[in-house]
Nucleic acid binder design. Sequence first.
DNA 1: GAGTGGTCTAGACCACGCA
DNA 2: GCGTGGTCTAGACCACTCT
Lengths: 239, 239
Amino acid sequence: MDESPHYRPLYRQVYDYLVRQIADGAWRPAEALPSEQALAEKLRVSQGTVRKALDALAAEKLIDRHQGKGTFVAEHTSERALFRFFRLAEPGGERAVPTSEAESARRRPAKAAELRKLHLQKGAQVVEIRRTRLIGGQPAVHECIILPLAVFPSIDRRQPLPNALYALFQQEYGVNIVSTEEELRADAARREDVRHLKLPLGAPLLQIDRVAIALDGSRVEWRVSRCDTTHLVYAVNLS
Amino acid sequence: MDESPHYRPLYRQVYDYLVRQIADGAWRPAEALPSEQALAEKLRVSQGTVRKALDALAAEKLIDRHQGKGTFVAEHTSERALFRFFRLAEPGGERAVPTSEAESARRRPAKAAELRKLHLQKGAQVVEIRRTRLIGGQPAVHECIILPLAVFPSIDRRQPLPNALYALFQQEYGVNIVSTEEELRADAARREDVRHLKLPLGAPLLQIDRVAIALDGSRVEWRVSRCDTTHLVYAVNLS
DNA sequence: GAGTGGTCTAGACCACGCA
DNA sequence: GCGTGGTCTAGACCACTCT
């Protein structure tokens, strides 16, 4: 494996090695990794040590393991991505499924706030995507998405964009979203919101400010969603 | 251990046994459990099997483990409970710390919605607590908390209530809150909100509807918080 | 030094998916 | 029946805390 001045357990080194391999695309999404035994022999450690590393990866949903079948790179299918990061639901439970419309994308230099949010260098280019999302045929969310052009080259030329952007990020750009940081607040509908969401001016809406973080820790998306929560709720389960 | 018709791995049986022990208060919060070796001998399993069960408990934050010291029942100190389940923060990061004022508690029969939310039987008594919470000296949240009287006997006579209710639940009633289900929506300030939160009528506010779930899976608290998010945000990190 | 949890190993056997 | 991951064991050694 590798040597470092500070002590790092063997299984941790195996873990880091595997994360790097996945991030570098050594195995495609949904493709099988080598078996525990094969990895153990290749890395010259015991099978138990490999297993501990793989269990950690599975806990973070980076891989899927199936007894009798093998270990696979987790795939950001649109259903999974929606279920994992899209939190709007009917009050009481059922997860809501959105469709998109009225989409636009354009590239431009990043503004100061965007440089800060995405940890970009001055002068960086971004793509701004705006779209309205419908739930049950009704406009429910309008969102503004900022992406660094350097991470997603020419993504602005790729219209229409799929409903689940994170699946596109993974499949076409090799970018795995592993976590998000969100800030929620209530705000009053502005003229712009009235236009997008058929709400009265000043009506309360829920604003979700999200930064998405990739496998390598970089901040690759800033998304501000303004949601009509008359018929929907944002559902969180903490534990 | 025990026998059941369906297959349950040994470590799972050890896990269930330990959960039951903790739920029954076999060890007080912050008290040490027996060592891995001692548990292994008592339960007639290998140390590795006990370890796997303990690791799972630690992952769910039911116990704390410290190399060289031992394994301890996790304690819901007020700081920890606030950090874990109180999500209001300054925009950008710093977690906000609330104080309470204008508190009231009274017992009464549960209403229909409360029976449903808390899975109570008709005729059950509940305690309704209302309080305003200040952040930085300013009223920021008004909440209405519904508790089943059967679970928290005489809790209505215990005023003033501590800021962190979940620590009280654990220490005085043996009730460990392990998870919550929340639904968030934006709403317009009503007359009642104006009185509590110094907001203009109709101003947007964030409503958090939370059910808290105890170690045994029972639903032991329904809390509706109405928050002024002019200066605060609700922060969520998903992964 | 004694006792705790943490790491690592080697090997046996079980449960599952598939051909 | 073979190969996969899942469980379980026994034992060695390491790292940390406390006395």
